[in-house]
Design a protein around this nucleic acid. Structure first.
Length: 298
DNA sequence: TCACGTCAAGCAGAT
DNA sequence: ATCTGCTTGACGTGA
């Protein structure tokens, strides 16, 4: 089991997700920003290695406007070597990477232009992982998308679009159960139709489910991950006390975390802590797991 | 230095 | 109709 956190490390003074306004776009600004973001990515990875956190989500803002039509710069070639260096660091230390394109990426949209932009954005995410020289165990996680008043048709549309994707995207794409529309069961239906692996989000499942217990759910998702996909990835979070249902915790609830770990037996997976205070909670999780040799092998 | 209006993009649900 | 939340506020202008 590897432990990680998404995108930002608050205890470091660099930010790897710097961006700028479309109005301020220039090639120079893009180059400067990507340079900064890659430098910070490397620093965060070194911090993570130092602290036994070998799972990390790279921000979608790594290359701002990467898939926007304003961007005609060949950033892939320009930064090829730098990506290669960072990729070596990742592979050498056996770090696992995920990416999570944001809410505007809707593969099953009923609008052609939305689908087109979504595929361009997925292509960018795949480029990042390819430039880093990472194999198909490094994933791009996506929600199924909109429902449009007819979930069955919308699932079918997802499957159709998935099957048409370029292999470079397809080999990395996984779907994640969400907190309002597509449950674990919906994702399993889609998996049955096209074989796409399912990334299990524990907190979304808590909010939106069909009654499956944690270990039952883990058993079902584990079967959707092939050898070439690696160990299943999961997103873990818990409810922030005194906030409305579905609000992610500010800091890990250690009791809830221990309980989850206990109820997850005997399954193994890599775990992303989607908790607001990022690396602080991930560090606590590592500390807890180190006491349980079943999980920590490094 | 700080306040604050606004930011590429979609969708669902609440108000 | 408009606002809010989503994996994450933070950019950039004006005073």
């Amino acid at each position: 089991m590897k432990i990680g956190y998404p995108c930002i490390n608050w205890s470091m003074d660099c930010r790897g997700n710097k961006t700028f306004r479309l109005k301020s776009y220039s090639e120079e600004r893009l180059i400067d920003t990507v340079e900064n973001n890659l430098d910070c990515l490397e620093e965060m990875l070194r911090y993570n290695i130092e602290h036994d956190m070998l799972f990390f989500r790279i921000t979608s803002d790594l290359v701002p406007f990467a898939s926007h039509k304003i961007n005609e710069f060949d950033w892939q070639s320009y930064f090829e070597e730098r990506f290669g260096e960072i990729g070596k660091l990742i592979n050498k230390n056996d770090i696992r990477i995920s990416m999570h394109p944001d809410q505007f990426i809707v593969l099953n949209s009923t609008k052609d232009d939305v689908v087109e932009r979504s595929i361009a954005e997925l292509d960018y995410h795949a480029d990042v992982l390819d430039l880093l020289g990472l194999d198909s165990t490094h994933k791009i996680q996506l929600h199924v998308g909109g429902v449009y008043g007819d979930k069955r048709k919308s699932k079918d549309r997802f499957v159709r679009r998935y099957e048409q994707l370029d292999e470079k995207i397809k080999k990395r794409l996984v779907i994640e159960n969400d907190d309002k529309s597509y449950t674990l069961k919906d994702c399993l239906d889609i998996n049955e139709m096209c074989g796409i692996p399912i990334l299990f989000d524990t907190f979304h499942h808590q909010v939106n489910n069909s009654g499956e217990e944690i270990s039952e759910a883990l058993g079902m998702v584990s079967k959707t991950w092939d050898k070439k996909d690696g160990l299943p990835m999961i997103d873990y979070s818990s409810q922030e006390p005194d906030e409305k249902d579905g609000k992610h915790a500010e800091s890990v609830d250690e009791e809830d975390f221990r309980e989850f770990i206990n109820s997850s037996k005997p399954y193994d997976f890599d775990m992303m802590l989607e908790i607001k205070d990022k690396e602080k909670s991930a560090l606590k999780a590592v500390k807890i797991l180190k006491k349980d040799s079943r999980f920590f092998k490094n």
